[in-house]
């Protein structure tokens, strides 16, 4: 009896959750459906399916925001930033965990404090640094800024992980005559692989979607990333929803695909990224 009752309760809960999930998906339905309609039809009835499919919305959006160019800018900035973040972040974290000096302890504290600091608290003087170092309107410039701005979170993730990695392997390699670079390359990097995946996933979501830093640094059209291109598009065509919605769908597409394929790692990354500080 209890078994049956329990199963009914779970069944009812499941049905409820499915309904809520449909509610969660409703915005996507509205956006995708309307992105395929001519302008007049969107205003008449936003809930209906399109009667005529207006593919021209997409070809229009594709060329107006120069999708290929902004997409490759986003890829370039995100991938290079993360490559260097992983290198300098893992090296610094390993060093800080293994060499327990006062300075290293202080540095770690500074990194954690920086994670709580809002971007607005450094934004204005940072623009002066960016200008003085001639990093304005340069994709490399933006990448260098990310190397500073995203290091604290990267170090935080690696630091917590490396603390739980046993030191014996490294000691054994040292006795076998490996130097410190060989130890790091052949012993440490393979052992922290799962955290590297987490760092890549979480930083991809953050840097790919970042808006304010690119807005401040890349004002030149040809350097725009996806969020910037979408933003300036909306500034130009306020309430031209037929173009705008197609632009939104195009803009979401790459990261949604990334998520659907890497789902397992994304979920695992969120889980291991939320360890308590």
């Amino acid at each position: 009896m209890i078994q049956v009752r329990r199963r009914t309760i779970v069944g009812v809960m499941e049905l409820g959750m499915v309904l809520i999930a449909m509610l969660f998906l409703a915005p996507f339905y509205f956006v995708v459906v309307n992105s395929l309609k001519p302008f007049g039809e969107i205003l008449k009835n936003a809930a209906s399916l399109p009667r005529i499919i207006a593919w021209s919305n997409y070809t229009n959006a594709f060329s107006k925001i120069k999708f290929l160019s902004v997409f490759s800018n986003s890829i370039f900035i995100t991938s290079l930033s993360i490559l260097f973040l992983v290198i300098i972040g893992s090296m610094a974290s390993w060093w800080m965990v293994r060499k327990n000096t006062k300075f290293n302890g202080l540095m770690f504290f500074a990194f954690v404090a920086a994670m709580v600091t809002p971007f607005q608290s450094i934004m204005i003087p940072l623009m002066r640094v960016v200008t003085d170092f001639h990093l304005l309107n340069s994709r490399i410039g933006l990448i260098l800024v990310y190397l500073g701005y995203s290091t604290p979170f990267t170090v935080f993730l690696y630091h917590g992980f490396i603390k739980s990695v046993p030191i014996q392997m490294e000691e054994a390699a040292l006795i076998d005559g490996c130097n410190i670079f060989q130890i790091f390359l052949y012993i440490v990097i393979p052992m922290i692989r799962s955290m590297t995946i987490t760092v890549i996933i979480l930083q991809t979501l953050l840097i790919w979607n970042d808006f304010l830093l690119p807005l401040l640094i890349l004002s030149k059209r040809s350097l725009h990333t996806i969020p910037l291109a979408v933003f300036s598009f909306f500034g130009q065509y306020t309430n031209r929803w037929d173009y705008a919605l197609a632009t939104l769908v195009l803009g979401m597409f790459p990261i949604v695909i990334f998520f659907l394929f890497m789902q397992k790692y994304v979920i695992a990354g969120v889980r291991s990224g939320s360890v308590k500080g």
């Binding site: 090296m91 920086a114 640094v129």
Partner: peptide, 14 residues
């Protein structure tokens, strides 16, 4: 490298 960029981009501006 990590400390350099951290100081240049966060600590010094702050």
């Amino acid at each position: 490298p990590a400390v350099f960029f951290f100081i240049l981009i966060i600590v010094f501006p702050f």
